[in-house]
Design a protein around this nucleic acid. Sequence first.
DNA 1: CAGGATCCACACGGATACTG
DNA 2: CAGTATCCGTGTGGATCCTG
Lengths: 133, 133
Amino acid sequence: MRPEHKNVPALPAGPHLDSDCRGAASVLARVGDKWSVFVIMMLGDGPKRFNEIKRMIGGISQRMLTLTLRGLERDGLVTRTVFPTIPPRVDYELTDLGRGLSAPVKALGTWAIEHQPEIQRARMKFDARNDNA
Amino acid sequence: MRPEHKNVPALPAGPHLDSDCRGAASVLARVGDKWSVFVIMMLGDGPKRFNEIKRMIGGISQRMLTLTLRGLERDGLVTRTVFPTIPPRVDYELTDLGRGLSAPVKALGTWAIEHQPEIQRARMKFDARNDNA
DNA sequence: CAGGATCCACACGGATACTG
DNA sequence: CAGTATCCGTGTGGATCCTG
């Protein structure tokens, strides 16, 4: 067991970057994770079931969703509730900690959506300049 | 040329996730990038030179820093200014767009630092429960 | 339905050497 | 100093098949 989990490496070793920053790195790694961000946003408005989340996100494999949810659970950001029914049902919900995080994450998401066009234009221009290939 | 650049895949194809979200994904991918986040934070207080940034961050290889800066430049988040002196000198600075982004990013960083202990405790507990290995 | 197990590709990222 | 070029290990993540 214990193979993947999302590795949370914590920067190598350098005596650089004050330790707060280094510890924060592993947290940012989770937040920085594309899928984690999406899941947190999806869970923003109430608990959801596994396949429900999967459908909402769309491009994610069940493997990645499982791994992502496991990671978020590990970090105390979401709770996993199993209903021992047939067929089984599992609900995922943000914890208080998770809800706290969802605020800054949403801010980021909002920013991303708002400025997406500018960024895409910047990319086009940049690529155009360097694409003599 | 044009080998890496940070791939910006934009989710596969699924007719899921409203298109705003899908476009935002590629933006979040940049923000989600660990190194990009650090660089943006470093550049938060004024322009910096290449090796200056490298030293401040510490754990990054010059390759990754180059790639990261290239990506940020491509997205119109930082400007690259070359002084044709000997030895050469290159300054990197946040654009207005970049400065706009640095706000939410800092918010996230702050959150990460503040709640890092809770998260680490959550991880310990989680690992303790499942580590019968 | 929710997810564990496996196989596999390939992009990411480190180390090193070389250049303007 | 600020890169580029190359080699190469490995984590990440998709696809597929199987179970309670």
